[in-house]
Nucleic acid binder design. Sequence first.
DNA 1: CATATGTTTTCATAATACGAAAATACGTCG
DNA 2: CGACGTATTTTCGTATTATGAAAACATATG
Lengths: 259, 259
Amino acid sequence: MNQEDTSQATRIQVIDRAASLLDAIARYPDPVSLKILAAETGLNVSTAHRILASLIQNRFVEKDAASHYRLGLRLLQLGVRLHGNVDVRAIARPIMEDLRDRFGESVNLTIREGDSVVYIEKATPNRMIHVQQLIGARAPLHVTAVGKLMLGAAGEDAIRAYAQRTNLPAYTRNTITTLPGLIAECGQALARGYALDNEEAEMDVGCIGVLIHDGTGNVSAGLSVSAPIARRRLEWVEDLMEAGRTLSAQLGYSVQAVF
Amino acid sequence: MNQEDTSQATRIQVIDRAASLLDAIARYPDPVSLKILAAETGLNVSTAHRILASLIQNRFVEKDAASHYRLGLRLLQLGVRLHGNVDVRAIARPIMEDLRDRFGESVNLTIREGDSVVYIEKATPNRMIHVQQLIGARAPLHVTAVGKLMLGAAGEDAIRAYAQRTNLPAYTRNTITTLPGLIAECGQALARGYALDNEEAEMDVGCIGVLIHDGTGNVSAGLSVSAPIARRRLEWVEDLMEAGRTLSAQLGYSVQAVF
DNA sequence: CATATGTTTTCATAATACGAAAATACGTCG
DNA sequence: CGACGTATTTTCGTATTATGAAAACATATG
């Protein structure tokens, strides 16, 4: 009598519903009415109302004078406390700002989650035209510079498994969609220490990415510059790699292991 | 048979429990075991396990190889999309960084929530010793510079009600704990356009704060510098007020209304 | 003022989340 | 290596809990 369960495990209905309400609210830039939220989530109005009331009590949601709902501050409070990443972000910020000023382009910090990279921090320049990435946004590994490095670091078997799972969907006509092509690209990128994204995620956008390692030697994040393809300069590679080394060092990474 | 309900309204058990699990996880800097989480929240292990599994499916929580739990990226994703405040933060950041460089001290952006101010953005200097405020942290209105301005802007009746509700708890020996004292202080602060905090929240910490207004003329946030009291300079007041005016203007506030 | 539209509350009911206990996994020490 | 202690995960009958239809209430609209 229920819809197919996305992942077969035992789900908790209310939590799934609460999550979809939060998503629905997030989708709108302005506070949203109960009516709309109920419609968007397919919930009965009274159910939606009750769940929202509970979310309000827990400060995940706020309600304004007109009974319109918006996200609550508890989310911010929890969001900035994300394990470990909080350190990377704090440490990375000055470095990112420096790069942004040097290049005059957007600099992003990403981490891997599943088969995606997630943007966790950004520094954007004051130019009219620059590449904008929303914090929390995601992109598949094989269409981003940092993602390809992460795949390379994960090894050939992992790349095969990734390709199998995702089928390497194309985002632009430059997206790498063949397994041999991806393996070659990731390996090469890893070997030279940086990766390029030549309009593979979006036309007219080019990136350069490097990996960040933490104290235990694991890949903990990725640092990248994104620019309109015509403005991207390969001269940035050196600065970017240097910044990556600095950041990794500040996280306790020592390069010795390589030799 | 149940515990007293904190707020008499109809609560949803699972959501309350999920929220307290999230809080428990947030309390620890490192990933936490199920055992501990169950103990902290007073939940049955199997219940905690089930709820956590659901939170994981919804990406609010992650589980590492050792079955230890940490906060998930969905929180970040949602946290940065907070209505409206997202604008203030984005617009304020460069201004805050400028002030930080000018003063060499921590600059904070706060908003009011209930009887507290909540820190929503900060810019910290590179000095060894500086005042640290965690984003999402809270402080009562009457012990902070910005809070006193907000009280002043809310009017004398509101101050009375606030005093009644909170009883004006003392945080240091400088905290204002009398109603007449608070009314006088808030009124004066509002009139001159800035407020001081002279070690009222924490000994050795002094602040200067100003209000930020949005396009509709409402108080939307507060901007403040925090410094070790010995380093705080009243000369900063002008710069800070100017920054506040700039920020308010960028949010669409026009001063004309005052006259 | 009447009508329409949206929000909030109520309440009987069925479905849902509960938790004790069993099963499984993981270490650790003799 | 095997046996014991500890933590995690799964199972399953049951009672509690969340559900949603409908009624009451609030707010806009013509």
